[in-house]
Computed example of a mutant assay.
Amino acid sequence: MTELELRDLRKTYRARGRPPVDAVRGLDLGLRSGELLGLLGPSGCGKSTTLRMIAGLETVTGGDILVGGASVTDRPARRRNIGVAFENYALYPPLTVRENLAFGLRARRRADRGDRGDVERKVARIAERVGLTAVLDARPAALSSGQKQRVSLARALVREPDVLLLDEPLSHLDAAQRDTTRRELKRIQRDLGHTAILVTHDQEEALSLADRIAVMRDGVIEQLGTPYEVYDHPATVFVADFVGEPAINLLPATTGPDGRARLSAEVLLPLPVPLPAGREIIVGVRPEDIALTGGDGIPARVLAHEPLLESGLATLTLDGVTDPVVALTEPGTRLAHDALVRVTADPRLTHVFDAETGVSLR
């Protein structure tokens, strides 16, 4: 197992006649041996560029990449011993699964004058590990999407890499295959103990697979923490909005002299922290933290209710509040359109952000 460290890693793209584009801006990140880190963010935030720089597929503008304490920034990709499972599989159509898995090993064996039998043993061992033994002699065209993804993963693992990079590994799978492959991926990574980075825009993948998550935006890390830390204590409005399904309710408000947030003239919410009166803030409440009550609470009107069997989603309007509020309802709840209900939100589970900077005030 090997540690990975990024020090002030930067990537700037320059094109004649155009202003430079800073894709990655001073990334500092350290991975423990055997850790799986989820690099999570929207398209264009710099996560795939970061992965490509680690792999040696993209030149580095500035900073350093260390694997096992040694810098690999100036090494070519073939000398970094980093395995990559690509988003689009990148399999060779004319070759069988066995030949696809062995291709890179044989190229290295010729360069290093290694043992041919060792290649065959490694291929057989990794094929058994990821469940590909039965299709070793099949070509990619005969495989399902899930099998192709396992071949891509196995090809990255068969070289016994110091670091494993997973680039959107489940994006081409349907829902059922994604769930199955996600569980297999986690089991394999845990069993083999590889230090790994998972690049994804899918929060469910990151939350379920990663030991820690780095949420990226515009080339920088907005928050780094465990899945629980990122979800329960978002550092910014962006993180709160990006992580969570259904999405968090974000409501502009002003702090009042009574220690509550004024969403409108009629709607006041208790705050989890004392703040001076008159401050512009954004209040965040997750749908599962809004409770429908039969007694005291804030009056709300049902705009729509979606019964989803395990739970439901109620879209509500509050007096004087422009944006609707979404609440998670208990199984079996029945709400008619335009019905009047009352809701409460536990201040201990309420998030507060500065309206100007978007930074958490908790």
Score class of each variant (00 low, 15 high):
residue 2 T to I: 01
residue 2 T to P: 01
residue 2 T to G: 01
residue 3 E to T: 15
residue 8 D to L: 02
residue 8 D to A: 15
residue 9 L to I: 07
residue 14 R to S: 14
residue 18 R to D: 00
residue 18 R to Q: 14
residue 19 P to N: 08
residue 21 V to F: 14
residue 24 V to A: 10
residue 28 D to V: 05
residue 29 L to W: 11
residue 30 G to K: 15
residue 30 G to A: 15
residue 31 L to E: 02
residue 34 G to W: 09
residue 35 E to C: 07
residue 37 L to C: 06
residue 38 G to K: 05
residue 39 L to T: 06
residue 46 G to V: 05
residue 54 I to G: 05
residue 55 A to I: 00
residue 56 G to H: 12
residue 57 L to G: 04
residue 59 T to D: 09
residue 60 V to K: 05
residue 63 G to C: 08
residue 66 L to Y: 08
residue 72 V to N: 04
residue 72 V to M: 05
residue 77 A to Y: 12
residue 77 A to T: 10
residue 79 R to T: 00
residue 80 R to F: 13
residue 81 N to E: 02
residue 85 A to L: 02
residue 86 F to E: 00
residue 86 F to M: 02
residue 87 E to T: 06
residue 87 E to L: 07
residue 90 A to C: 05
residue 94 P to S: 14
residue 98 R to D: 03
residue 111 A to H: 08
residue 115 D to W: 10
residue 116 R to C: 01
residue 117 G to H: 02
residue 127 A to L: 09
residue 128 E to H: 14
residue 129 R to P: 02
residue 131 G to Y: 07
residue 132 L to K: 06
residue 136 L to G: 04
residue 139 R to I: 00
residue 143 L to G: 00
residue 147 Q to G: 07
residue 152 S to G: 15
residue 154 A to P: 00
residue 155 R to S: 04
residue 156 A to W: 12
residue 159 R to H: 04
residue 164 L to G: 01
residue 166 L to T: 03
residue 167 D to Q: 04
residue 175 A to L: 14
residue 177 Q to L: 15
residue 178 R to C: 11
residue 178 R to W: 13
residue 179 D to R: 15
residue 179 D to Y: 11
residue 181 T to G: 07
residue 185 L to T: 05
residue 187 R to I: 03
residue 188 I to E: 01
residue 188 I to C: 06
residue 202 D to T: 04
residue 208 S to F: 05
residue 209 L to R: 01
residue 209 L to M: 15
residue 216 M to P: 03
residue 217 R to K: 15
residue 217 R to A: 12
residue 218 D to E: 13
residue 223 Q to A: 11
residue 225 G to N: 09
residue 226 T to Y: 10
residue 227 P to Y: 10
residue 231 Y to M: 09
residue 232 D to R: 15
residue 236 T to E: 07
residue 243 V to M: 12
residue 243 V to E: 07
residue 250 L to S: 03
residue 250 L to P: 03
residue 254 T to K: 14
residue 258 D to C: 10
residue 261 A to M: 06
residue 263 L to A: 08
residue 265 A to K: 13
residue 268 L to T: 10
residue 271 L to F: 11
residue 273 V to W: 01
residue 278 G to V: 04
residue 281 I to W: 12
residue 281 I to A: 02
residue 284 G to T: 03
residue 291 A to W: 11
residue 294 G to C: 07
residue 294 G to E: 07
residue 300 A to Y: 08
residue 306 E to Y: 14
residue 312 G to D: 04
residue 322 T to G: 06
residue 323 D to F: 11
residue 327 A to Q: 09
residue 332 G to D: 01
residue 333 T to N: 06
residue 334 R to D: 06
residue 336 A to T: 09
residue 341 V to T: 08
residue 341 V to I: 15
residue 342 R to N: 09
residue 345 A to F: 12
residue 346 D to R: 12
residue 348 R to F: 12
residue 349 L to M: 12
residue 349 L to V: 00
residue 351 H to W: 12
residue 352 V to I: 13
residue 352 V to G: 07
residue 353 F to T: 00
residue 353 F to H: 01
residue 355 A to Q: 09
residue 357 T to P: 05
residue 358 G to P: 01
residue 358 G to A: 09
